[in-house]
């Protein structure tokens, strides 16, 4: 049943007013918030999302990984920071690049010490190196500062975790995916 206490809108008198309201131009924000969103989403996925589970046969690579991890692995770097140089990095991006370089040096020192690490840490190390390599490839393809900034932030995060893993510091006690693919010594592969 219609409610007679209030007129239906737009009433004739208000048609012009409603038309004027609808004709108001859209407002634009002072700045885009996409770069912030991208950074937050990248950080969230780096710290929370499980990594892809490795196939059972991956244990075969364990020995090789162990050797590589103990002997030290040269990390995949973005090509001479060339991509970033093309896009005029912002001060925030430059700060992340500097942080990343410091972590590179720290990792080189850790590699030189050739600290033996256990199998679990070695696997976590290998995964982090894969992800750092992937980030480097993405960085080489980045064409805007906001993209590059999100990727450098991810690289710093991954390298921090790698440095902690190599130094034997427990940021995350298991490998990056919670050690899901590591099996007990009694596990049989048929």
């Amino acid at each position: 049943m219609p409610d007679d206490r209030f007129p239906m809108f737009p009433a004739d008198d208000d048609r012009d007013l409603v038309a004027a309201l609808r004709a108001l131009p859209m407002a634009a924000p002072k700045r885009s918030v996409f770069a912030e969103l991208e950074r937050e989403l990248a950080n969230a996925s780096a710290s929370a999302a499980p990594l892809p589970r490795r196939p059972r046969g991956a244990w075969i690579a364990l020995a090789a990984t162990l050797v590589a991890a103990i002997a030290g692995v040269r990390l995949f770097h973005p090509q001479d920071l060339g991509a970033v140089a093309e896009i005029s990095p912002s001060p925030d991006t430059l700060a992340l690049i500097a942080q990343s370089q410091q972590l590179d040096e720290m990792l080189a020192t850790l590699d030189a010490r050739s600290v033996p690490i256990d199998a679990e840490a070695a696997m976590a190390s290998a995964e982090l190196e894969d992800l750092i390599g992937l980030t480097a490839l993405q960085l080489n393809a980045a064409r805007r500062d906001d993209e590059a900034q999100a990727l450098w932030s991810r690289r710093v995060d991954l390298m921090t975790r790698l440095a902690a893993t190599r130094a034997g510091v427990t940021l995350n006690p298991l490998s990056d995916n919670g050690g899901a693919y590591l099996q007990n010594a009694s596990y049989r592969i048929d």
Binding site: M26, A27, A28, P29, S32, L37, L41
Partner: peptide
Amino acid sequence: GDMRAFEQIYRLFERPVYTLAL
């Protein structure tokens, strides 16, 4: 999770969302 798709969606709706909130 394709970030480029996110960006396209963001660009399409940035101003409508901002205007409504304003």
